[in-house]
Amino acid sequence: MMKHTGNESRTFSIVRNLTLPVLLIVLWHLWALALPTGSPAPTPIKVVQTLGEMLGKGDLVSATVQSLGRVLTGFSVASMLGIVLGLMMGSSQAVRENLDPIIESFRPIAPMAILPIAILLLGTGTPTALAIVAYASFFPVVVNTVHGVSRVDRKLVLAARTMGVSRFAILTRVVLPGALPSILLGTRLAMGVAWTAIIAAELAVGAKSGGGGSGGIGQMMFVFYAYNIDLNAIVVCMTVVGLVALCIDHIFKMLEKRLTPWRQEI
């Protein structure tokens, strides 16, 4: 047996990590070589070329920024509402009893299912996209906030109350920090769902309004699908969607570490 030094096994594991993705790309390339000329099928080389062109034109960046802006707006509104409502539901039984049935019965209704209603009420523009994003991100935030509040140490609340701390101060100084890890988890989940929902909403709005001017990266994908058929560009958009999702997830994980360093792994 050969003795692996630490360095060597590290190289091995990097090689192993890269094997499958590289292999797939090579296979894709070989498959693309066998295609007849003029086929619309995406190939690795053309995808990279298209990426370069789209970056050069700047429409990819502007569409992504537009989608991200919508996600952030809708998400902020929904998470504010979700956190406030969740804190209220978590700390008052009366509020929880009354709101829980309604929230639980809306939860299984997917954001995409209310899209037709949103289109009817708000048209095919930005308001619809915002409504879908807000709806999608509201539930993870509110549910996790309630859960977080329920796990706050009862003794801390009682201690604060014994010392004559006001209700509002208890909420902001005891309950909120106690529930923060769970709330942050909720917002991270919500942001992931919101990003998925915006793509779906923009895609479907594009599909159903005949490419109406709603913009965003989902709409862009739809235009590449239906009007100027360009599969390479669709693959580029998919990659961007994935990268953005990855970045969002990392930023929120970093925030979690920063804001709640005392938290244990959930």
Binding site: M221, C237, M238
Partner: peptide, 19 residues
């Protein structure tokens, strides 16, 4: 296998729709 899973996972299913 994990790198491939982690590369594909962020691409939501819905983003696959046009393709």
């Amino acid at each position: 296998i994990e790198p491939l899973v982690e590369i594909l996972r962020p691409i939501s299913g819905i983003a696959w729709l046009p393709l």
